[in-house]
Computed example of a mutant assay.
Amino acid sequence: MKRMTLKTISLALGLLATSMALAQTPQELAIKKLVEPRLGEGTKVDSVTKTPYAGLYEVRVGSDVLYTDEKAQYLFLGNVIDAQTSTDLTKLRTDELSKVKFSDLPLDIALKTVTGNGKRVIAIFEDPNCGYCKRFRKTLQGVENLTVYTFVYNILSDDSLVKSKNIWCSADKNKAWDDWMLNGKAAPTAIGNCAMPNDRILALGKKLRVTGTPTIIFTDGSRLPGAVDVKALEAKFASLK
């Protein structure tokens, strides 16, 4: 494989993004027509784009990527790695595809907590029954100057919605969430007509392809899955400067 520096990799990804915005070539359209039926009923190929490496064509299904040859005779599942630099080209591409426009997030349906000056901002998808979320919530106690928007994403069990509604309908929902996630203190049972935006949050998570909790989204649109530690979180914030 031809050696690619980080600069040429960035350029290649830029070219891919540009080509995605343009009409697909007859060759790419032909490949799409051949590949789509082979991926299973109901699977929609969003685009086929020729890559700048190894003569491969990228087949994109949402934010997932696979590859094929120019005649669509073979499908390649897995990551393309630059053997010279050990750069995972597929991961770079899928990270780009999974980016979120932070300003478009409906923060009005998220819980909000602020520590210090709050200048560092993240959004998190969390489930009240998620042990990793609880671990990460404790990690956040060691991070200064942070604003956290929490989307209560009830996907783990039926009981998740019950717990979340009780928290959402509390007098201080932000405190009630922390009480539960940090100390295991359950909120009192919700009464009356209080409703939480569960359907809107589920739709948002589906749209953004959030498949697990916690999922952390940064202001540059990138995301990190799982309960990362303070060191990884601080490194990510440093990279945003």
Rank of each mutant, 00 (worst) to 15 (best):
R93A: 01
L89A: 07
D64Q: 14
S19N: 13
A110D: 01
L75E: 02
Q84N: 09
T139I: 13
L89E: 05
A123L: 00
K163V: 10
K119W: 02
K165R: 15
R200Y: 06
A21G: 08
N154R: 02
S164M: 12
R3Q: 15
K206F: 04
L22S: 08
K101L: 02
A232G: 02
T113H: 06
G55M: 09
N198H: 12
K175I: 03
D64L: 11
V152F: 13
K185V: 15
S19K: 15
P26N: 10
A238T: 15
G221V: 05
K207W: 02
G42N: 09
I9P: 03
K185R: 11
D69E: 04
D46T: 01
W177T: 00
Y53G: 00
N129L: 10
L204E: 08
N183Q: 07
D159R: 12
L75Y: 00
G14W: 01
I167C: 07
F136S: 09
V80M: 08
Y57D: 10
T90H: 11
A227L: 02
A83D: 05
I155Y: 11
T25V: 00
I9G: 06
K206S: 12
T211Y: 13
L208C: 03
E144N: 09
P106T: 09
K44C: 01
K44S: 10
L140C: 11
G42Y: 02
K99I: 09
L77V: 11
A227T: 04
K91S: 06
I155R: 08
C133V: 10
L56Q: 06
L182H: 00
R38T: 12
V80K: 05
T189N: 13
I31G: 04
R120D: 13
P26I: 13
V61W: 03
T85S: 15
D220E: 04
G142D: 12
V114M: 08
L240F: 12
T147M: 10
S63I: 07
C133Q: 07
K99L: 06
N79R: 09
D178G: 05
L22V: 03
A110Y: 00
G40D: 03
Y74Q: 10
A54K: 08
E126K: 05
L111T: 10
V45L: 02
S239P: 09
N166S: 10
D46A: 02
V35L: 05
A72K: 07
A72H: 04
L204Q: 14
K207A: 13
D104L: 13
R120M: 05
S47A: 14
R120V: 03
F136D: 11
V45T: 06
I122D: 09
V152L: 14
P188A: 12
Q141S: 15
M196R: 08
F151S: 04
T18L: 15
L92G: 14
M20A: 14
P52T: 08
M196G: 11
T18K: 15
T18H: 07
L233S: 06
L97I: 01
Q84M: 06
R223Q: 03
A17K: 13
V61E: 08
K173R: 14
D46I: 01
T90R: 08
T90K: 15
A171P: 00
M181P: 00
D46E: 00
L22R: 10
T68S: 04
D220Y: 09
V121W: 00
E126A: 07
